[in-house]
């Protein structure tokens, strides 16, 4: 039982959107589920988010956006991460138009948690991703 490291999650507000109710509630739930949550705060550029993700050795990056800029900015986060050789999965939550899902997934967003998502769904998805990563490294 040497790997007792808790799952580390970076939560970030992407772009200029200020709505943080959702991301904070998600952060509280992840923490209650035993994960370590690093929150960047608001108004983060893709570059800033990538820098935080790499600095904090997180297992997953959770982006929050409710103001549509994710159509442009979320894929940019993925691209920048991959450019730095990081395979960290990226998930997106907030106000996401369902018809944007296929394009966002194609551009490397692992999962989208829009309006109506249950906290439990996010928790189990992150656990699943972390387990996948662990089995890959074994």
């Amino acid at each position: 039982m040497k790997d007792k490291r808790r799952i580390r999650v970076l939560l970030a507000k992407l772009g200029l959107d200020g709505h943080d109710r959702g991301v904070i509630v998600v952060g509280m739930a992840l923490r209650d589920a035993g994960m370590e949550v690093i929150y960047t705060g608001r108004h983060q550029t893709p570059e800033q988010i990538v820098e935080s993700a790499l600095q904090e050795y997180v297992d997953i990056v959770g982006l929050s956006s409710l103001a549509d800029a994710h159509r442009t900015l979320a894929p940019k986060v993925v691209k920048l991460l991959r450019g730095k050789g990081a395979s960290i999965p990226v998930i997106l939550g907030g106000f996401i138009q369902p018809e944007d899902t296929p394009a966002l997934k194609e551009e490397g967003i692992d999962e989208i948690f829009g309006i109506g998502t249950k906290l439990e769904d996010i928790i189990s998805f992150i656990r699943g991703k972390a387990a996948e990563k662990k089995s890959e490294t074994l």
Partner: peptide, 22 residues
């Protein structure tokens, strides 16, 4: 839109992806 609300003109780098969206 958010760019205006945060005091950025449309041609500012931070306005990317935000202009006229909300």
């Amino acid at each position: 839109d958010l760019a205006t609300q945060l005091g950025y003109d449309p041609d500012h780098p931070k306005a990317e992806g935000e202009v006229g969206r909300v």
